[in-house]
Design a protein around this nucleic acid. Structure first.
Lengths: 209, 209
DNA sequence: GTCTATAGCCAGATAGAC
DNA sequence: GTCTATCTGGCTATAGAC
């Protein structure tokens, strides 16, 4: 949450910040169409009219929240993907940093995925963003390391998909996962902690020569 | 689509079937809150009042569609999970059959995940269903095969998560995936075809002794 | 900046003719 | 069973007092 990073108590936050954080929370759990401006106002502890005063419309408020959410994740992904580290190290760093991050924002993955599916017009908008996740360097590196005989021959795109899938899926499908393997919320987070090393191990085992 | 399986042309379908198929389509792409009864009626080529005549309310119609969607997937999952096949064979069969199936219903995974997240009350309802995916036998089998020295020691739940994640994620996060690795719809489905063997290879490579 | 009150619209649901 | 017309409630957005 914002408060966490800004080190503020709720009472110290500006009205705009309160609205933003409340909107972040409500949009994440309900999605754009499911969210209600009234609920956001209640959550922020202010009046509904204030939402429009600061953000004009539900869509603008949503856009601010969504791009901010995306902006939280993308830069660290890129930093790791574009570093000079060898592949195995990149995989370890990515998995560790991604999971650590989304443990603090457990609804972020499903929120981003859901809204990218339901509002395809956002896809175009975020693709122009400099901060968008850009794996092209990583994809080349995979080919290089195959050529060097470090890893087995493999489709770079498939490998990239594997990495994303293994890390993001359990969060994106949280309730389904909890229901199917029959675990509590605490056990879920315990499992996610373990996954920080499990995933790298699995993937590296699968591709190393 | 229903028509495909029933081998009917649209004109031959009963009104109830037309409504159901239209609802299936609209709910999948818009979600419960995003869907409009008017859009479903238009899609079905009949009047809005008919929806209520046959299904009473939007919620009942949605419930019928959702449980049907889930019922399509769960039985084949269980059939494979509960067979007497050795683990590696089960993994191969599951991945192949799951991907083949959702290639025909590419929005099903995201639909199920999204609605389980947005309507937690459905979780309880479907968990009581006999047809729910039940991996308990598979989890025991993993422990057994570890004991027999066939596969490396590994957390059974993590392995199960890996399998689900690798297969379901690309469909659930379709638009995000297409945007990030920058591929067309056709290339996406090509990649998914390749994944039928890629995933089993990766997982089996990672765990075999 | 912040509130109350309300406009205006849209969506789900129903009445009632055929 | 199928339609048109309409009710009713809820939601976004705004007007206007303070």
């Amino acid at each position: 949450m914002l408060t966490k990073w800004l080190n503020l108590t709720v009472s110290m936050m500006s009205t705009e910040e309160k609205i933003f954080e409340a909107a972040f929370k409500v949009f994440q759990s309900k999605g754009f169409t499911g969210a209600r401006m009234q609920e956001i106002a209640d959550e922020a502890g202010i009046n509904k009219a204030m939402l429009h005063y600061f953000f004009r419309s539900k869509e603008k408020l949503f856009e601010a929240v969504f791009l901010n959410a995306f902006g939280k994740l993308a830069p660290q992904v890129n930093e790791i993907f574009n570093s000079e580290d060898p592949l195995f190290e990149k995989i370890e760093k990515f998995v560790h940093s991604y999971i650590s991050f989304v443990i603090d924002y457990p609804f972020l993955p499903q929120f981003i995925i859901q809204e990218m599916n339901n509002n395809p017009e956002f896809v175009a908008k975020f693709l122009k963003d400099e901060k968008r996740p850009n794996p092209s360097k990583l994809l080349k590196q995979i080919e290089t390391e195959i050529g060097l005989g470090i890893i087995k021959p493999i489709s770079p795109k498939q490998l990239l998909l594997d990495i994303f899938a293994m890390t993001a899926f359990p969060f994106a499908a949280q309730n389904l996962v909890k229901g199917i393997i029959n675990i509590s919320n605490d056990e879920f987070f315990q499992l996610m902690e373990e996954r920080k090393i499990h995933i790298s191990e699995q993937i590296i085992n699968a591709i190393k020569k």
